[in-house]
């Protein structure tokens, strides 16, 4: 069985969790890996929490439904409450410490606090919080390379007027990476 990486991005609608997850999926695909991106959808998307799961593998991906993911990036308290307990033993939990002032209380997983909203405000656009989180996740797991991520971002966002936004995204990524001090083998 090929080793696969699984991550849930979860937060409020509007925090960019779906977009961050898709960018990760696109990047992994560009690197030649098999990927699945699966969202929560329907009425629960209206105003409530939104989440998506990304599975990345060198081999065939079996179940697209992952009940106990190896890692989760939670952007708000309800998401911590829901997914904090589901992360697999030995897994990784990234917590948006700008909005969440508690931890999961577990001692069998690695927790990293990433103040993504503070980072976003610092770099000049509150909308790039999701990129800081994605960068922290990639820094900790090497799920994809940053070169691939940056070139995919450029491809998706394009040039022209978007150039300034691209610049801010770059800075958010740099700041997100800095938070992570070591690698987590998941």
């Amino acid at each position: 069985m090929a080793k696969q990486k699984e991550v849930v991005f979860a937060g409020f609608g509007g925090q960019g969790v779906m977009t961050a997850g898709q960018l990760l999926a696109y990047t992994a695909m560009e690197e030649g890996k098999n990927v699945v991106w699966i969202p929560s959808y329907g009425p629960e998307m209206r105003g409530g929490t939104a989440n998506c799961t990304i599975v990345i593998s060198d081999g065939r991906i079996g179940s697209p439904i992952i009940n106990n993911p190896m890692s989760a990036c939670v952007f708000n308290r309800p998401s911590l409450d829901k997914f904090g307990a589901l992360v697999k033993k030995g897994g990784l939990l990234l917590i948006n410490s700008s909005l969440i002032d508690v931890k999961s209380g577990r001692d069998d997983i690695t927790e990293i606090l990433v103040p993504v909203n503070d980072i976003a405000i610092k770099v000049g656009n509150p909308k790039v919080a999701n990129m800081a989180m994605l960068a922290a996740f990639i820094e900790a797991t090497d799920a994809v390379s940053f070169d691939s991520l940056l070139s995919m971002m450029e491809k998706k966002m394009g040039g022209g007027k978007k150039k300034e936004l691209l610049e801010i995204n770059h800075r958010a990524i740099e700041e997100g990476r800095k938070v992570v001090t070591g690698k987590v083998n998941i």
Partner: peptide, 10 residues
């Protein structure tokens, strides 16, 4: 099923 419809794969 709805999973086939909603999920993204390459």
């Amino acid at each position: 099923d709805a999973m086939i419809g909603q999920m993204m794969e390459s």
